[in-house]
Write a protein that binds this DNA or RNA. Structure first.
Length: 661
RNA sequence: GCGCCUGUAGCUCAGCUGGAUAGAGCUACGGACUUCUAAUCCGUGGGUCGGGGGUUCGAAUCCCUCCAGGCGCGCCA
């Protein structure tokens, strides 16, 4: 029998044998009601009973008979129970014998696929309008995108992470207009020194915070004073056409705010490869090329009459009658005034991501990030990709992390690609849609919002300035962590714990679950939280540190295997053995909450093992105090194995590996 | 009106492709720190899985229907 070189995967081995024997692809596994029955089970015989026209028990016995003759790796025996379940008893000693040394040997790369993949993945996330501070809803996007990117990199894909900067949209125009026209000195002629305008910004308040209020205030002022929206219109045109000094001013403002956004997400260890500026999409002629292509392929048509008269549209669903009158389901790409809609630009941009446009951005270095990696940005003053020795786009798979409200336009983008003949790329356009973060009634009240009826939740809105700012939240969590700590902890540790707590909080919900942000819930430091994960890791580190201090060496060899594996040891081994399968699965489904869940399960199984290494004994003797050197070596090795796998899991979730808390 | 999503313990949520007795955390109550981290662990309490029908040997999971909530369906952004 050839020794299994890959990391021990108990269930996979069984599935392999079963699949071959039965010729069935999908074989679900379950957990039997009692541990004495087996470690896991399958109801496959019950499912097969009908088509094979045999009683399930008979089939089960047959399968069990075969399996017991041809035992899959790590399986001790296979039994069946009525009405036809197959129960698998795992040989945990064998698992320990194979798994522990494997983990210890491979360390950081345990469970990682051995070879790189050819496919290139383009992940876009964050993409916050550069006109105000980020709020916690934006953070959900960043954390999801960052975690997906980490997982895909781990799995061997080449991943480019990009942050799209919408610098020409109305939102930036609003803030620019507010700065120009709200409080004196007011911008009148093109000759006005813009330094006077910059001078209005208080030095003691961060720019993104100042703009947060200013933006909201501008919305109010516009309602009162109609002339403001006319002024805004003029600003918009100047910026769109790239007329200085306003276009330069707007770009400066956006650039400064982008810096604060990047600082904000860096607090959660989120970094990018490229900043993509919308202004560059237009400037480099992406749209013109796309427009020609769309016309050539007959994907869009010019409307001579009807509600969309004078527009270029994607015929998508014809017209419908609603209570509000006749509506067109067609998507407008070019307005009757000749301007391009978001979706239009998105199509051009999506084509570029796949390398389907004959055009490219110009690039230059933005700076070096805290993780040591260079961040690139598109720029009119940049150089072509060939000159910088790095290429972007040309992806095989594109993942756009955008909240669920954008599902319809995202669908249009992918549909257009398909209709243009890019079927494969249309299928490889993934909209990673997640539900929004809303404020609980309690949170809204704490933020001083006037109670509008008895609403259960309140949506965050930049427009009205309601929301919890990301940086405030991070500070709040940090302070809470310091408060809750029994001993004095370092600033750095508190920061790392806060980041882990927040990432975990935003990650553990399934994508289609709205997060109802509640301060009590979000500031928890006990139970199912990021802090728990870090604590388990730090605890394992401490044990190993202590062992080293006391000069207790432990070198793994097969002789230190105990005669039997305790219940908590078994649970831990089981969790450890599932690591790579989980990561692989999440890489496919992109349901990152399942990795978060795994992290918690793994941490729990370790904590249980730590508290009761031998649950049947009345008094637990812990690790370094064990008299039996063999058992001591075995358990310390298990602690080390946990530390390594937990460390890998934390890294994938973008969390620090704290050696000490 | 049409489409998508959600409804599971007092609260916040898991539950993958249908499988045996539906799980966590928080909260409440009761325990465990002179020993490598008690931000931990153990125990107790708590659920007609929104309602109803159907498919199936078997349904929280699939289908239909109703109810409740969220979102989308702009030449807005």
């Amino acid at each position: 029998m050839k020794k299994n070189k890959k990391s021990p995967m108990i269930r996979e081995g069984v599935l392999d044998v079963l699949r071959k024997y039965l010729g069935v692809e999908e074989i679900p596994l379950n957990i039997p009601p009692g541990k004495e029955m087996g470690d896991f089970s399958s109801a496959i015989a019950l499912s097969l009973a009908k088509e094979r026209r045999k009683p399930p028990m008979e089939i089960a016995k047959e399968i069990a008979g075969y399996l017991n003759e041809n035992l899959p790796p790590f399986i001790l025996k296979v039994t069946c129970t009525p009405p036809g379940y197959l129960n698998f008893k795992v040989d945990w000693l064998k698992v320990a014998q194979a798994l522990i040394p494997e983990i210890l040997k491979r360390g950081d790369s345990f469970g990682k696929p051995p070879s790189l993949r050819k496919e290139k993945v383009f992940v876009e996330h964050t993409s916050v309008n550069p006109n105000k501070a980020m709020h916690i809803g934006h953070l959900r996007n960043s954390v999801l995108g960052d975690t997906v990117a980490r997982i895909l990199r781990w799995l061997g894909y080449s991943v480019d992470v990009c942050n799209y900067i919408d610098d020409t949209g109305i939102q930036v125009v609003d803030v620019v207009s507010a700065l120009l026209y709200l409080d004196p000195p007011v911008f009148e002629k093109d000759t006005l020194d813009l330094n006077l305008i910059w001078g209005k910004i208080p030095s003691d308040e961060p720019l993104d915070y100042y703009c947060w209020d200013l933006y909201a205030r501008f919305q109010e002022e516009m309602e009162k004073d109609i002339s403001l929206s006319q002024k805004r219109e003029r600003v918009l045109h100047q910026i769109e056409k790239g007329v200085p000094p306003l276009s330069v001013f707007a770009k400066d403002l956006a650039t400064k705010i982008v810096h604060s956004h990047l600082d904000t997400v860096a607090e959660l260890s989120i970094y990018f490869d490229l900043l993509n500026w919308e202004s560059d999409i237009i400037r480099q002629g992406f749209w013109n090329a796309t427009f020609d292509l769309l016309k050539e392929k007959g994907v869009i048509r010019f409307e001579e009459k009807g509600p969309n008269q004078g527009c270029w549209v994607v015929p998508y669903g014809g017209h419908i009658e609603t209570e509000e009158g006749v509506k067109s389901l067609d998507k407008v790409l070019v307005r009757s005034n000749g301007s391009i809609t978001y979706t239009g630009k998105d199509i051009a941009y999506q084509l570029w991501k796949f390398g389907l446009l004959e055009r490219d951005f110009l690039y230059k270095i933005w700076g070096t990030q805290a993780n040591g990696e260079i961040l690139w940005t598109t720029s009119p003053e940049g150089e072509p990709a060939s000159k910088i020795g790095r290429s972007f786009g040309k992806a095989d798979l594109v993942i756009n992390v955008i909240d669920v409200r954008q599902s319809y336009p995202q669908e249009v983008v992918s549909e257009c690609l398909g209709q243009m003949g890019f079927k494969k790329q249309a299928e490889s356009s993934i909209h990673l849609a997640y539900e929004v973060v809303n404020l609980s009634a309690q949170a809204a009240r704490l933020l001083g919002m006037v109670e509008t009826e008895e609403k259960k939740t309140v949506a965050m809105s930049g427009r009205s300035g309601t929301g919890v700012k990301a940086k405030d939240f991070i500070q709040l969590v940090k302070r809470r962590i310091i408060e809750k700590s029994e001993q004095i902890i370092e600033e750095k540790v508190a920061q790392a714990l806060a980041a882990s707590a927040i990432r975990y909080y935003l990650l553990k919900y399934s994508l289609e679950s709205q997060i109802i942000f509640d301060f009590d819930e979000a500031l928890k430091t006990t139970g199912d939280t990021g802090v728990y994960l870090e604590y388990a890791y730090a605890r394992a580190s401490s044990i190993l540190r202590k062992a080293e201090e006391k000069g207790i060496g432990f070198e793994w060899d097969d002789h230190c295997l105990p005669t039997h594996i305790t219940e908590t040891e078994r649970e831990l081994l089981d969790s450890l053995s599932q690591f790579s399968t989980i990561v692989e699965k999440v890489g496919k489904t992109l349901r990152v909450s399942q990795l978060a869940e795994y992290a918690f399960t793994l941490a729990t199984s370790f904590t249980n093992f730590y508290e009761h290494p031998d649950p049947h004994l009345k008094n637990q003797t812990l690790f370094i105090h064990l008299q039996d050197p063999k058992l001591r070596t075995f358990r310390l090795s298990l602690v080390k194995a946990f530390k390594l796998v937990m460390g890998n899991t934390l890294s994938l979730l973008g969390m620090s590996r704290l050696q000490k808390i």
